[in-house]
Amino acid sequence: MASLKMLRMRINSVKSTRKITQAMKMVAAAKLRRAQSQAEAARPYAERMERMLASLGAAVASSPDAPPLLVGTGRDQVHLLVVMTADRGLAGAFNSGVGRFARARVRALEAEGKTVKILSIGRKGAVYLKREFASRFVGEVSFQGKKTVEFADAAEVVAKISAMLEAGEFDVCTLIYNRFKSVISQIPSEQRLIPAPLPEVQEEAKAGPQAVYEYEPSEEEILAALLPQNLGVQVYRAILENSAGFYGAQMNAMDNATRNAGEMINKLTLNYNRTRQANITKELIEIISGAEAV
C-alpha cells in the first residue's frame, strides 16, 4: 500500500489539475459566447448573399461560358479537400472527429480512382492528417495567435483556392469542418464549394414573378465579383462555426475533466483516510500487545 506521504502528494497534484481544468472551462465558456455572437452576426450577410446568388446563378449556370467558380471545370477527377480544425487541442474528440471524417473521405475518393489534394486550415488537423497523407498536402493555413478571425482572413483562403482553380489544379472543392449544432454536439460535415451548389428546384418555383432583374453593370461582371465574395462568406461562416464549436467542445471536455478530477480526489481521500486508520490501529495493537506481554 502507498505511504501516507505519497497519497497526500497525489491528492495535491490532482487538486491543482482540477484548478487548471476549471479555469480552462471558464475561459472556454467566455470565448464560446463571443464566438457564438460573432457567428450569429455573420449570418444575415450569408443569407442575403445566398438569396442574391440563387436568383443570379440560376440564370447564368446554364450558359456555356459560365464562370468556373460557379460550375467548376466540368470534370470530376481532382478533388481538393479543405479541412478545417482548431489550432489547439484539449477539446475532446473535436479535432480527431474531423480528422477521422476527412481520412474516410480521402480513402473513399482514392478508392474511386480520384486524385485528392488537401488544404488544411488549423494546426491540429494538419498534424493529424500529415501522418498519413503528407504527399497530398498543398497548403496550410493557421490562425494561431489571432484573437478574432476577420473576414479578410477568409478572403485570404479564398484567394488561394481561386488561384488554384485558375491554374487548373483541381476540379471539385469540398470543405470539411465541424458544424456547430449545439454546445455539446459538433458534427463533422462536408460542404461543396466548387461547383457552387444551387438550390435550383425550389428557386424556380419561388422566383417566378420576380425573376426578371436588371443588372448594372452586366450580369457576368456582377457574377464575377459576387462569386469570390460568396466563397469568402462560406469559408468565413465555416471558420466561425468551427471556432464556436471548438470552444463548445473544449468547455465540455474541461467540464468532464474537472468532474473526473473531483471523483479521483474523493477516491484518493478515502484511500488516504483508510490507510491512516490502518496505521493507527496497527500501532494500537502493537502497544496493547506490548503491554500484555509485560
Binding site: Q210, E214, E216, E221, I222
Partner: peptide
C-alpha cells in the same frame, strides 16, 4: 452604384447593381 449614384424610391424596378 458602379455607374453613378442612384436614388431608390419605393416601387423601383428589380435590379442587381455593383
Amino acid at each position: 452604384a458602379a455607374e453613378g449614384e442612384m436614388g431608390v424610391l419605393p416601387g423601383h424596378a428589380p435590379m442587381i447593381v455593383a
